[in-house]
Nucleic acid binder design. Structure first.
Length: 569
RNA sequence: CGGGGCGUGGCUCAGUUUGGUAGAGCACCUGCCUUGGGAGCAGGGGGUCGCAGGUUCAAAUCCUGCCGCUCCGACCA
């Protein structure tokens, strides 16, 4: 490819709309252009990267026994009504009608379509197991698309679905996908980590997310350096913390005027924050949920929802609360009617002694409150958010916290969709059984963005060789020097013939312009051909990643030398 | 959906407070010159100032409504 002919318009300045580094660099380096909020055109360079990633995905999926197919993006409403998700999905689904006024949606995911596909064709246990996948655009009308390709309304996804006779079969399929994903992200050069993820209403030990480690990631993960434990904070389980034994003191009301935060109360009463209990109120389909955690802990909303058996919770609006509750800091568990309101107490709180908590009166707290004697729970559960330094649930060592970009997820669906959509098979006994399903997703376009988030510097992108749009750029540096221009052309041709994906910057531009563009786009190797090097019979080969420059003799071995330099990256 | 910010040539932005001939840099075109890290000079093309109303002799500028983008929050198979 000749740069003079390539459609890759680079920008000197960053468009104002971009916030994260991958978005800025993809715009500046001529990889993407925005068509609408959360929707982007992939220019030729980006498409090459996406195809590289897709190829890796295909190879690993095929190796794991999955078969590629392609389902329509536009899906009929009926199957979504049948699964019950037509109404559940809400505004996040792009909906449309055809000329006959029939309803459709743009597929946000394909469980319904694939399940109705398979149920029509698979009747016998002899046809199982089956694992199918596709790579196509998905559509989710996000409330807040952001960060360029990291959270778009249209994005490229590899989604696959496994169908098995039973849970043992599902485990096999799941583990194959887990391994395939590990191979895929390793081959893409990502710094990633599989973490345990929340599996919501379906429950079980049924989900892992593959997180590309990046500060710009939207997800928070915890991990243990001693054992291999790693989890999304939403999921991370916590055992109750034991508090040292103490003799119970008499419950006492104290005036705490103007103390609106737990820190203020504790300071006023000269108590450590770990001796206090704070409250957080949520709204759910089961009504008000009052949660209590230790003063220095945070509530994990996902755990709250799971503990109460509701699909989701949100912060309670003021009108659901009393004055003492909303004025702040004065809500407490003592005296609550646990049959009328859901009082959800963190398991650590139930181990505490002589604690300070709100007295449900403005300006008043209790001290020396004790669980069981002074307050009870409707539900006791682990509802707090794991924090840095909390004990690892596997080995007890203090955990670390990091941020990640979710580039893939593997999920055991069990019979959620096969039951709803009646996807059954006949077993050996001729008995009808629901298929046991798993689903597995990879955000292909997001993986490209994640790679840039991980590999960049002040000059631009630094592509891992495996997914770089081209491996090598040849730069004739003195366009007036016909000898070196001709030599550059020859080198370019020979590298192409050797099967190395190469471009030549044949533009009549000054060297600085070419170098800046090459750095910005992030070709792994840059081969400069100029009078200086040629005088000594050498090429100047610079690695984008390390910045190291090597003078390579322009002899019969130079292509092998360049190949080995590429392999070393 | 709640709260903030912003919409002026392809890009980055000034001009809006205090109404009076639409600007700069970059990019683009022509020529000269230059060539190892985004050169220089000269000339040139390109903008219904987001849209629609309103006030005014006169609106990028003031008023009203709408749209879009963006940030924070909420939300997220």
């Amino acid at each position: 490819m000749r740069i003079s002919e390539m459609y890759a318009p680079t920008l000197r300045e960053v468009p104002a709309e971009a916030e994260v580094i991958s978005h800025k660099l993809m715009l500046r380096a001529g990889f993407i252009r925005k068509a609408a909020g959360g929707m982007y055109t992939y220019l030729p360079l980006a498409l090459r990267v996406l195809k590289k990633i897709e190829q890796i995905v295909r190879e690993e999926m095929d190796k794991a026994g999955a078969q590629e197919l392609l389902m329509p993006i536009v899906q009929p409403a009926e199957i979504w009504q049948e699964s019950g998700r037509w109404s559940v999905y809400g505004d996040e689904m792009f909906r449309l009608k055809d000329r006959h006024n029939r309803e459709f949606c743009l597929g946000p995911t394909h469980e319904e379509l694939v399940t109705t596909l398979i149920r029509a064709d698979v009747r016998s246990y002899r046809q199982l197991p089956l694992n199918v996948y596709q790579i196509q655009n998905k559509y989710r009308d996000e409330r807040r698309p952001r960060f360029g390709l990291m959270r778009g309304r249209e994005f490229i996804m590899k989604d696959s679905y496994s169908f098995d006779r039973d849970e043992a079969g599902l485990d096999v399929a799941y583990n194959k996908m887990y391994d395939a994903y590990t191979n895929i992200f390793s081959r893409c050069g990502l710094n990633f980590r599989p973490v345990e993820a929340d599996s919501g209403a379906i429950g079980g030990s049924g989900s892992h997310e593959f997180m590309a480690i990046a500060d710009s990631g939207e997800a928070e993960i915890v991990y243990c350096e001693k054992c291999q434990y790693a989890a999304n904070v939403e999921k991370a389980e916590l055992f109750p913390l034991e508090a040292a034994a103490e003799e119970m003191q008499a419950l006492k009301e104290v005036e705490t005027p103007n103390c609106k935060t737990i820190e203020a109360v504790c300071e006023f009463l000269h108590l450590p924050v770990v001796k206090s209990v704070k409250a957080v109120a949520f709204k759910s389909e089961k009504g008000l949920i009052l949660c209590f955690v230790r003063g220095d802990h945070e509530v994990n909303e996902i755990k709250v929802a799971n503990a109460c058996g509701v699909p989701e919770v949100e912060m309670a609006p003021e009108e659901m609360l009393t004055a003492a509750q909303t004025v702040g800091g004065f809500m407490g568990p003592v005296g609550m009617d646990t049959t009328k309101t859901i009082v959800l107490i963190d398991n650590t709180v139930m181990k505490m002694h002589n604690v300070c908590c709100g007295a449900n009166k403005v300006g008043v707290h209790y001290v020396n409150a004790n669980p069981e004697r002074d307050f009870k729970a409707t539900i006791v559960a682990d509802i707090r958010l794991m924090q840095e330094g909390d004990p690892c649930p596997h080995c007890g060592a203090p955990v670390k916290v990091a941020r990640g970009i979710e580039v893939g997820q593997v999920f055991k669906l069990f019979t959620k969709y096969s039951s709803a959509l009646k996807a059954t098979y006949l077993d050996e006994a001729g008995k009808e059984q629901p298929m046991v399903m798993g689903c597995y997703g990879i955000g292909v376009s997001r993986t490209m963005a994640a790679a840039i988030e991980q590999y960049n510097d002040k000059d631009g992108i630094i592509w891992p060789v495996s997914i770089a749009p081209y491996a090598v750029i040849v730069v004739p540096v003195q366009m007036k020097d016909a000898v070196s221009v001709a030599k550059a052309e020859e080198v370019y041709q020979q590298l192409c013939q050797a099967g190395i994906e190469t471009v030549i910057d044949d533009r009549d531009e000054r060297p600085g312009v070419k170098f800046k563009d090459a750095d910005l786009i992030g070709y792994p190797l840059r081969v400069v051909v100029g009078p200086k090097g040629l005088a000594e019979g050498k090429l100047e080969v610079k690695a984008r990643k390390t910045g190291s420059v090597e003078m390579v003799d322009l002899d019969s071995q130079y292509i092998d030398k360049i190949k080995s330099l590429l392999a070393a990256l």
